[in-house]
Design a protein around this nucleic acid. Structure first.
Ligand SMILES: NC(=O)c1ccc[n+]([C@@H]2O[C@H](COP(=O)([O-])OP(=O)(O)OC[C@H]3O[C@@H](n4cnc5c(N)ncnc54)[C@H](O)[C@@H]3O)[C@@H](O)[C@H]2O)c1
Ligand SMILES: NC(=O)c1ccc[n+]([C@@H]2O[C@H](COP(=O)([O-])OP(=O)(O)OC[C@H]3O[C@@H](n4cnc5c(N)ncnc54)[C@H](O)[C@@H]3O)[C@@H](O)[C@H]2O)c1
Lengths: 202, 202
DNA sequence: ATGTGCTAGTGTTCGTGTTCACATGGCGCC
DNA sequence: GGCGCCATGTGAACACGAACACTAGCACAT
């Protein structure tokens, strides 16, 4: 199943709830994301029978169910490794906190950047990563260091017992099989765009 | 066909070329990304017969072919809209330029940020977007403004004749059909991770 | 209490993308 | 110059996810 869509539905439901909408049909949800309504129903029915026939889905009930499925009913402490351009943009982004992701420790090898606090969050040298991650029970790590350091950082995170990694470095990194790994590669996104431009120019 | 893989191959070939490797087999490429070797061959054969039977692929030849397919043999001027946290991280990122993407105009509505130059690139108020994009022949736009402004910015980019948009705002934006649209939603990436964590904790 | 209308749930079809397995065809060695 | 090697290219099998179309069940009106 494609989990990404559940996230999209959840965000939409948050909006609908704010707008005071009580129920929503699979049809309406589908139109918002130009999907097929059967798709939406299959996605939702996979995890349980959340809907009411003849009515649709109760917005707040469905929202709560989806949040529980996605693990958004709790707070997730997150470790951010690399406090450069991208790292600090991510840190200052408010959207993560809204979904329960709290960057609760930052690690960077640059002595000029570490051993201080930013908005109450400690910036620490990478050598303290293991201890700090364990002490805080952090399960999610974000890798925002240069490509050449990404594997080393991943190894440190793995050793510290982290369970999931979001990697921004443009390299394929290796992690133990039980660690969930997700790559975000912005160059690739741009390249798919230029591919289509180059093609239609042909 | 999944274009993303072509980008991955290309980056790998760049590395191989630097390392002085002359030829590479589909098998070797596949192992690097744990893919199937038939997959690699299908991907490449789709665009032409680039390989030599019994030998594999000539690294520099294949690299050049893929770059041409992806449109990386030329420079793409890019318009960046929104010069906040994320926008400036993207602007200062060196990786895009390496693939030929050059941010050549920045637009932001905040008067404190615009009407100046950063590293020789003008930061302009959004109202000048149309003129500037046309004048510079920009075909790719990056949307890094808050969600509530994203649709308005998209409309401006569309009116200016842009052909492709990379959107970082966490909303589904609408654009004319002939504009290639790509969304990057980092919250969703984190949520897929927390989904798996929540699931295995169950 | 019964009927009608509406929308969720679901078995099946459909299409795309992946994997398998083999035949094809350059290259170099004899 | 012919022969064997080895990796490509590709048709066929397969798997997965998406779309269709039908069935089931709840709510509300009568
Ligand atoms: N900036 C962007 O917009 C952008 C876009 C796409 C991808 N990326 C990728 O994200 C990563 C970070 O990019 P950036 O622009 O923030 O780079 P940056 O150079 O600004 O920041 C990297 C930070 O990592 C720290 N660091 C280096 N090695 C470390 C280690 N072993 N342990 C801990 N910290 C270490 C450095 O001190 C620095 O502060 C890179 O891999 C880059 O390719 C960035
Ligand atoms: N910062 C991150 O790490 C991050 C991560 C994921 C998603 N995003 C998304 O990226 C977008 C930008 O995030 P940010 O953190 O950079 O926000 P930000 O508030 O730091 O920056 C937004 C910038 O856009 C400008 N702006 C607003 N409306 C505009 C308009 N109509 N025309 C031109 N410029 C306009 C503002 O002046 C500001 O400079 C948001 O949609 C956010 O949800 C950011």
């Amino acid at each position: 199943m494609t989990i990404r869509r559940l996230s999209v539905y959840t965000r939409c439901l948050l909006q609908l709830e704010e707008d005071g909408v009580k129920t929503v049909s699979s049809q309406e949800l589908a139109e918002r994301f130009n999907l097929n309504s059967a798709q939406v129903r299959k996605d939702l029915a996979y995890f349980g029978e959340f809907g009411v026939r003849g009515i649709g889905y109760y917005v707040s009930g469905l929202k709560a169910e989806l949040q529980k499925i996605l693990g958004l009913h709790r707070e997730w402490p997150v470790a951010l490794v690399g406090f450069g351009n991208l790292g600090s943009a991510l840190f200052h982004y408010k959207g993560f906190a809204r979904q329960g992701f709290r960057i609760s420790a930052i690690f960077d090898d640059d002595p000029a950047k570490c051993n201080r606090e930013v908005n109450g969050v400690p910036v620490l040298p990478a050598r303290e990563l293991g201890r700090e991650v364990k002490a805080r029970g952090i399960q999610i790590g974000i890798v925002a260091v240069p490509a050449e350091s990404a594997q080393a950082v991943t190894d440190q995170l793995a050793a510290a017992g982290i369970k999931a990694i979001l990697n921004f470095a443009p390299v394929r990194i290796r992690a133990p099989r039980d660690i969930r790994l997700k790559d975000v590669d912005l160059s690739i996104e741009l390249e798919t765009l230029s591919f289509y431009l180059a093609k239609s120019a042909r």
